[in-house]
Amino acid sequence: MRLLTHNMLSSNIKGVVNGFPLRIEAEKVVEKTVEMNGEFLKKMFEKIDWKAFVDASWAMGYTELPEEADSSMLDSDEFLNRFHHALLELHLEEGALVCPETGRRFPVNKGIPNMLLHEDEV
């Protein structure tokens, strides 16, 4: 699971009001190099919740992102490289996503988060 996906995921438990962002418990993180596409990064920058993204990158052991960012930084190659790496090249392979409100853990195995709910959570 990429941090891009983490930034799009919320706790889906019935009754939870503030289900975003899910806290990351990382047991195993893998890196996979992919080609960079600046247009993609610029489009996604507008959609990303930056604070959640930075916190998630720290939980994954990557500490190179600035705590705050604005669109003018997209002109910097150094910034784009770091944004690209954190957004698309870091994968949570094993671990869990934790609901910020209830503490319920959604397991992540082989890179796949399981968001299925128990009957009493739907």
């Binding site: 799009m8 995921l9 889906n12 399981n114 968001m115 709910l117």
Partner: peptide
């Protein structure tokens, strides 16, 4: 590659993936 999620339809994605 694709990002994979075990979920019912798009449960968990409906808030943040809206309109994307």
């Amino acid at each position: 590659g694709a990002e994979l999620i075990v979920t019912d339809i798009a449960s968990g994605l409906e808030e943040r993936l809206t309109g994307l």
